[in-house]
Design a protein around this nucleic acid. Structure first.
Length: 118
DNA sequence: GCCTTGACCATTC
DNA sequence: AGAATGGCCAAGG
């Protein structure tokens, strides 16, 4: 983990942390904004995590945002993808069943950074 | 420089 | 048990 030295780096650090956690999510698993927020200390609020994901769209590094869903397992961010079905297809391509815009057995496929990375 | 919105979650009524 | 509201931080208008 890098220590924020410059104010500009501080902001980037926030995105970088979120992106890093998302990148650590193995294929076939999904995580939630709240889990990431809680992993970062739950002080930022889950909203910031989702907002950081929006920034991930502009990030140079590839971020598997399709593995990040809301607490209900609903693909809330699918509308922000290149295509509204890109997220679902990406999940299905990894072996994650998606139906009715929500992950099947989401609770089982849920990947908690706090529990896994500990 | 103040106000609104935002890929959300948890608590309370 | 379902619905409404507040909270969190940041950026854009």
């Amino acid at each position: 983990m890098s220590i924020p030295r410059n104010p500009t780096e501080k902001q980037r650090n926030f995105f970088q942390e979120v992106h890093e956690v998302v990148r650590l999510v193995p294929a076939g698993r999904v995580t939630t904004y709240g889990a990431i927020a809680h992993y970062l200390g739950a002080r930022h609020g889950a909203r910031m995590v989702g907002w950081a994901m929006m920034a991930a769209h502009t990030a140079h590094a590839y971020v598997p945002a399709h593995r990040v869903v809301n607490r209900n397992g609903l693909l809330t961010g699918r509308q922000h993808f290149a295509s509204p079905t890109a997220m679902q297809e990406a999940l299905e391509a990894e072996g994650t069943a998606v139906q009715e815009d929500q992950v099947v057995d989401f609770k089982r496929l849920f990947w908690d950074p706090l529990a896994e990375l500990e």
